[in-house]
Design a binder for these strands. Structure first.
Length: 587
RNA sequence: CGGGGUGUAGCUCAGCCCGGCUAGAGCGCUUGGUUUGGGACCAAGAAGUCGGAGGUUCGAAUCCUCUCACCCCGACCA
């Protein structure tokens, strides 16, 4: 492509709307253009990147025997009503009615539709397993879209669904997909961490998320540097410290006056103690039973873990519940409650001394309370993991990472096949529900993730398989006949070698062209300038190009090459990269 | 959905508090010229119903009311 006739409109100014680097650079490089909140145009450059990512995913899906389909984006409500998600996913669905008044929805995900398809055809164990996937637009009316492509309301997702006769078969496919995902991220040179995850409204018991560590993300996970266990904070199990507990009531309780200080945050600011000097007490209700949950002040209760531990889903208590217990919201505590209720403490409470707790009296807290002064029924792992928590496996200390989720894989079981009546006849002649798995990748989000992973202030850094072009040609002075002719020849030679090239053939000053090369993020750049009079052109290398590759080309920022060596050298680099990065294909 | 913020030229913003004359700057764009290894220079020029509606006023970008859009922080997700 020639710059002068291509669709490139770079901008020097930082867009006022963009807060994170990927959003900002995608806009500045004219990769995307916003149409509405969370809704973006992919411009020619952006679409080129999207298709690159798309292609890698397709190749890896095809390789594990998955078959590509394309399902509609518009769905009638009935299938969604059958699975109950017409209600449970209501808040993110774009719903509307057609002319006849039939309720319709723009697809948020496709479990219902794919299960419908498979239920029509796969009637025998002989037809299974089946792996079907698509790369398609999803619509989610997110409460808050964010960060450009990071969370959009219309976005491109790869969704794969697998159908099996047995859990053993599902487990095998789950592993295949896991491996395929690792190859996808390797080929895109995205450093991912795989973490155990919560399966949420998609369903299923086991799931893994593929995360990239970045502040631009919306998730958090902990990882144990000692044994490698990693899990999203929603599910991360925390080890218990080896501390004995024997209840010893405190004789004289010391009250402190804490007017209107109801939250830990307010208390910390006012009293000047650390968050971890407090014990947070939260009152839950399950049926007619009350449960008081205690957690160290710097920690949060994890309701997912709490529900799992209790085997039910307690709800937060209301104002009148506090009164019934002779307490008051904001000042509730485990000591001197009017009624004996169940008290569960998180492991983080073990060993706490001289803590501050609610006194069950408006505007008062108790101080100097030790953990053993509290009558605790049970200790359990019910808090969100934070930095420094104990690894439940090896007793190492967790590190907390901010992360962006790029992929998520689930074992669904029969959550969808039963309500949608996707049954097959097994060898034994019996009718059984199909066992399912589902596996997503945020295709458009990956684009942002690559930028977040490698890019700096004014410069994108694409990876080998994601860059819209492999090489950029700068003709320093386009009016110089010699420079022009040589540039044109190089351009044509590269095209004939099938190397994607963008030639900056504009009548602009050199600085402008160098800045554009950097902003656009293309790995290599050929500079055709004055050195041409000595028969030399320069080959420049994006200094941020992922160094994880064992390739010495990238030790230097530029090479002076004779014209005769240039194309050979570029071909050699290209083929080496291709072999090293895409070579994992050839097993 | 709660809290905070912003809408003025293609982009980034000033002007608004304290109403006043033809609404400004930089970048970008157009034309001509000079330049050409790190966002060049000179000259001339085009470009804005000040997000929208209503109101107050002799007079509104500026004050008031309503409204729309977008962004940021929190609970959900690829």
């Amino acid at each position: 492509m020639k710059y002068s006739s291509y669709f490139v409109f770079t901008s020097k100014e930082k867009p006022s709307q963009a807060y994170n680097i990927s959003h900002s650079l995608l806009l500045r490089g004219s990769y995307i253009l916003q149409l509405a909140a969370g809704i973006y145009n992919f411009l020619p450059l952006g679409f080129r990147v999207l298709k690159k990512v798309w292609k890698i995913i397709e190749e890896e899906m095809d390789r594990i025997g998955a078959l590509e389909v394309l399902m509609p984006a518009i769905h009638p409500s009935d299938l969604w009503e059958k699975t109950g998600r017409w209600q449970t996913m209501d808040d993110v669905m774009f719903k509307f009615q057609d002319k006849k008044g039939t309720k319709m929805v723009l697809g948020t995900t496709h479990e219902e539709i794919i299960t419908y398809i498979v239920s029509k055809y796969a009637k025998s164990y002989k037809n299974l397993p089946l792996l079907l996937y698509q790369i398609q637009t999803k619509f989610r009316d997110e409460i808050r879209p964010k960060g450009g492509l990071i969370r959009a309301r219309e976005f491109i997702m790869k969704d794969l669904y697998s159908f099996h006769t047995s859990w053993e078969c599902l487990n095998k496919t789950y592993q295949d997909v896991y491996d395929a995902y690792m190859r996808i991220f390797q080929r895109l040179s995205i450093p991912v961490e795989v973490v155990e995850a919560f399966s949420g409204p998609i369903g299923g018991d086991v799931s893994h998320e593929f995360m990239v560590i970045t502040d631009a993300g919306e998730d958090k996970f902990v990882k144990c540097p000692n044994c490698g266990y990693a899990a999203s904070v929603e599910v991360a199990k925390i080890g218990s410290r080896n501390i004995q507990y024997s209840y010893t009531p405190k004789e004289n309780l010391n009250k402190i006056y804490t007017p209107d200080l109801k939250t830990i945050d307010q208390l910390v600011k006012s009293i000047g103690k650390k968050e971890s000097d407090f014990i947070k007490s939260v009152l839950y209700k399950e049926g007619n039973e009350y449960i008081l949950v205690l957690v160290r002040g710097d920690k949060e209760i994890n309701e997912i873990k709490l529900s799992k531990y209790l085997g039910c889903e307690p709800v937060l208590a209301k104002e009148e519940d506090f009164e019934k217990l002779g307490s008051v919201a904001g000042f509730i505590g485990p000591i001197n409650l009017r009624k004996k209720i169940k008290i569960i403490a998180d492991f983080s409470v073990l060993g706490l001394k001289n803590a501050i707790i609610g006194a069950n009296e408006k505007d008062y807290h108790y101080k100097d309370v030790d953990y053993e002064n509290i009558l605790i029924d049970e200790f359990a792992d019910i808090s969100k993991a934070i930095d420094g928590d104990l690894c439940y496996r090896c007793r190492g200390y967790y590190k907390l990472f901010p992360a962006l989720e790029l992929g998520h894989i689930f074992k669904l079981g029969t959550k969808y096949s039963e309500p949608l009546e996707a049954y097959f006849t097994d060898k034994d002649g019996k009718t059984k529900p199909i066992i399912m798995g589902c596996y997503g990748i945020g295709v458009s989000r990956i684009i942002s993730a690559i930028i977040e992973a490698y890019s700096i202030e004014n410069s994108i850094t694409w990876t080998f398989n994601s860059s819209p072009f492999f090489i950029y040609i700068i003709t320093v002075n386009i009016d110089d006949e010699k420079q022009f002719n040589i540039s044109e020849k190089i351009y044509k030679d590269l095209l004939s070698e099938n190397i994607e090239v963008l030639w900056d053939d504009r009548k602009e000053s050199p600085g402008t062209k160098f800045k554009d090369w950097e902003l656009l993020g293309i790995p290599l750049c050929i500079v055709v300038g004055n050195k041409i009079n000595q028969g030399i052109v320069e080959l420049k290398i994006n200094s941020n190009f992922p160094k994880t590759l064992p390739m010495n080309y990238f030790d230097r920022s530029f090479y002076d090459l004779s014209l005769s060596d240039l194309i050979t050298k570029i071909k050699q680099i290209y083929l080496d990269l291709d072999r090293k990065i895409n070579g994992i294909m050839k097993i």
